[in-house]
Computed example of a mutant assay.
Amino acid sequence: MKKITIVGAGRVGETTAQILAEEELCREVALFDVREDVPEGIALDIVQTAPFFEFDCAVHGSNDPRILKDSDLVIVAAGFPRKPGMSRADVLESNIRVIDEVTDHIMAYAPETMVLMVSNPVDTLTYRVAQRTGWSRNRVFGQAGVLDASRMASFIAQETGFSARDITTMVLGGHGDTMVPVPRFCTINGVPLSYFLPEDRVEAIMERTRKGGAEILALRKNSSAYDAPGAAVAAMVDAIVNNRRRLLPCVALLEGEYGEADIAMGVPCVLGEKGVESILELELNEREQADFTQSANAVRSEIERLRDIQ
């Protein structure tokens, strides 16, 4: 991939840019932000780490949306972050106007690109971008499940003492308090999680996963998470750039899968060079399906709010 542009040079955007440059996942990383001089300063700081991390990826920033031109992938991390006590849905009204403007810039300067949404509430804003652009669902998708699954894996590692490298997890649904961790599809080096942990400990991990972002926000006080989100975005970019066809939980537009349509939420996706190449429809049990439907209802209520904001 030649060029990736990150919209929003906040902490998530900056961390993502640093990782993309270090791992040389493209030849050029561009940062776009409306704050005067900020993206240029961040780009310069990242470039000065090149001798240490031995990369020669070009990094630059601008306040001019024309920097989006010729982007193969645009990562949108712009908008207002939530504060302690706020849910992701609480920033919808503030962020919808930001995302609409960003979307218009993308359509004007990078009409052939793919869009990876990170801004919250990510399910609703992914839906919004897809509707506003009219682009196919393989080109507009969001990051959430990769991060949530990573958090769940780290909690399992802490609980069991096993290496996080051997832990595979799956989290579906909306990126919020109604997300659906699915322990039945979680394993430690292929062995089901239930072999190692009793049901009450698994339930505790599921609940901590749902509150994972809020836990960090409460501890940091003046900042939400950005290291793990940046790494999660980079993992998705790696799958696309290297056409790995990885099975990852991503926010995708549903067209009947899991009994849902006209909605965007987290499901297992095959991620490759064309973006979301397909969606895997797991056979959920009664409880899992009920939880997924509840999560879909929560996302749909946010989508309904979009009509009031317009």
Rank of each mutant, 00 (worst) to 15 (best):
D227T: 10
A214E: 15
G142K: 10
V91W: 07
Q48S: 12
I42M: 05
I303W: 09
E36G: 00
L92R: 02
M236C: 14
T5C: 13
M107F: 08
G161R: 13
L147R: 12
T124H: 11
N242F: 07
Q18C: 02
D45T: 15
I4V: 15
V47D: 00
R137K: 13
A21T: 15
G145H: 06
F196L: 09
P268L: 09
E22N: 05
L73P: 04
M170V: 13
A78T: 07
D33H: 03
A110W: 05
S194W: 07
Y258A: 00
V47N: 03
G272W: 03
R305M: 11
K211A: 14
A43H: 07
A290Y: 03
I67T: 06
V202C: 05
V38L: 15
Y109R: 08
D90V: 09
S71Y: 03
G61I: 01
P84T: 13
K221C: 03
I4Y: 04
S87M: 14
T5G: 00
D90F: 02
R184V: 12
R66T: 13
T124I: 06
A110K: 08
L25K: 04
V191P: 02
V182G: 02
S163C: 02
Q158V: 08
Q143L: 15
V233K: 03
S224E: 13
Y258D: 09
L253G: 08
E215N: 11
G259F: 07
R184P: 01
D227C: 05
V171F: 11
P181M: 02
I309M: 09
L271R: 04
I4S: 05
Q158H: 10
A9K: 04
A234M: 07
G142Q: 06
G176E: 11
A17T: 07
G275A: 07
A110F: 03
S71L: 02
E273G: 14
A298W: 11
T124Q: 10
A43C: 11
Q310R: 15
Y195H: 14
A130L: 11
P183W: 04
A157V: 01
H175P: 01
D262M: 04
E14P: 00
Q158W: 01
L280F: 06
V38G: 00
R184M: 10
C26P: 01
E93C: 01
V7R: 05
M107W: 05
R137T: 10
L116A: 01
R66M: 02
G161F: 12
E273Q: 13
D262V: 06
V180T: 13
F52K: 13
D70P: 00
G10C: 02
L280W: 03
M152R: 10
C26V: 08
E112N: 15
V191Q: 11
F141N: 00
P81D: 04
E304L: 10
V182E: 11
T133I: 13
A17N: 11
A225M: 13
E257F: 09
M117G: 06
F53D: 04
G41L: 09
S150L: 05
R244Y: 03
F32Y: 15
Q294S: 14
I19Q: 10
R66Y: 01
P183H: 12
I167S: 01
P192D: 12
G213Y: 05
V118S: 13
P229L: 04
G259K: 12
V7S: 00
R165H: 01
A144D: 12
A228C: 00
T178C: 06
D33W: 04
V29I: 13
T15W: 02
D72I: 09
Y127H: 14
P183K: 06
A261V: 03
E40V: 12
